[in-house]
Design a protein around this nucleic acid. Structure first.
Lengths: 236, 236
DNA sequence: GAGGTCGTCACCCGGGCGGGTGAACGTGGT
DNA sequence: ACCACGTTCACCCGCCCGGGTGACGACCTC
């Protein structure tokens, strides 16, 4: 899995070793992976922690490029620790690779959402691990094949991320879009009037214009169109 | 990127070589990749094609385990060819790895949706390619790191695949869910009556029951709840 | 057979909704 | 200066919608 950016990363890191922080509650893992990665000439393990609670402080003091993070840990788990890392002020967040002993698919989405760039099983070989660190340090991402498989299956089952439809957004004025968004929450005209500090009649005018411009009949069709066009989306 | 299943695959394929079909319009690629993979002792290139139009026939006659498919080809492109392969009758479809000369992110989702299990750039090394074939033949999936990066970015931006909410699905009867789904398309009571061959009054009764059971006020809130609960979802 | 749920349908009533028309004000373009 | 457009608001009207009540048959449980 090499490609131009991996190569350039390797060249770059010869001068500036990739700084690595290892977070795992098992001392064996910290020592094993630590020694293994430290042996790579383009990498340097700058710290380790046994608990997610120390991660933020360590990131602040050691400034790692890549954090290897066990997902299951006592006290603060890897998920929360990752979220905490990406919640840190500034925009120089380290890249995070999640480690898991077995196939914990229920955490994959949460981990990626939290900001992780990689997901490896702990049975990975030395080459796998070192390669993954280089890939992730190079700004790309890498998942274990079994994880990739699950991710793809989940991915294709999700609706395409909808960019708000231009045919809708274009025809309506900004104010009408405001009203449409609120109509799509199930509110009545009177409620919209109160919400927007307007007369109910004004709301009715806006709603009528929306209906006319979009060729719809009633407010239920406005709600449907709002969802289908991506103006609003499920999950609030 | 090795793991138990990769190992078992290799062990399995020593007795039964992985059968490979190569589809690419460039003769250089067919010959190069073909010779490269054929040199692997656990692989056997069983055919090649320069055009997506021949793929279905070749899959039928050569029964490959893995198809390496260029995404850009004259006449029938790799996307359509992949769809055609998975549209073939029977359930013993080969696994498909898409190849692309450069970073064609706009095709990634379509390719995966079509059924592809892998996505590689053509600058992959021999080890990358052979490793990817083994991973995919073993039932898992593998993406180039730059593709993985884009996939993750797109993935986390999508709303979680909603499993229809039990609080909604549980309270309503099957018939009421039917009506709710149709209400959520923006139809009037009269239209629902016609659609379901019922009296309009019956529809009104169902709608009233839905409103009462879910604690809603009017049909627009039914539409909102239908979308938010996952009973229906955008993208039709 | 008694009781419960579900699906079907009827009548009446009140109210929110949508349609039509008109108008005022401010902004921006030519 | 003029017109177009967007935003705001008013009055009137017709009607679909939602609420209440009651009913009938089918099915299932006990």
């Amino acid at each position: 899995m090499s490609n131009p950016s991996t190569v350039s990363t390797a060249g770059f890191s010869a001068a500036h070793p990739i700084r690595i922080l290892i977070v795992d509650d098992q001392a064996m893992v910290r020592q094993g992976f630590g020694a293994l990665l430290d042996a790579q000439e383009d990498m340097s393990v700058v710290g380790s922690a046994a608990d997610g609670s120390e991660v933020v402080d360590l990131v602040r003091t050691t400034r790692p490029d890549v954090v290897l993070m066990d997902i299951r840990m006592p006290r603060v788990n890897g998920l929360d620790a990752t979220r905490a890392v990406f919640a840190m002020p500034g925009d120089q967040h380290p890249r995070v690779i999640m480690l898991t002993t077995f196939d914990a698919d229920e955490y994959v989405f949460a981990a990626l959402q939290a900001g992780a760039s990689g997901f490896l099983l702990k049975d990975a070989t030395a080459e796998d691990l070192a390669g993954a660190v280089r890939v992730v340090a190079g700004g790309e991402a890498l998942l274990a094949p079994s994880i990739t498989q699950k991710l793809i299956a989940d991915y294709v089952s999700r609706p395409a991320a909808r960019t708000p439809d231009t045919r809708v957004l274009g025809a309506l004025t900004e104010r009408e879009l405001d009203v449409m968004r609120l109509v799509a929450t199930g509110r009545s005209n009177a409620e919209l009037a109160a919400e927007l500090f307007l007369s109910e009649q004004t709301i009715k005018t806006h709603v009528s214009r929306i209906l006319a411009k979009l060729g719809l009949r009633d407010r239920t069709q406005i709600v449907v169109t709002a969802y289908e066009s991506g103006l609003v989306s499920a999950g609030s």
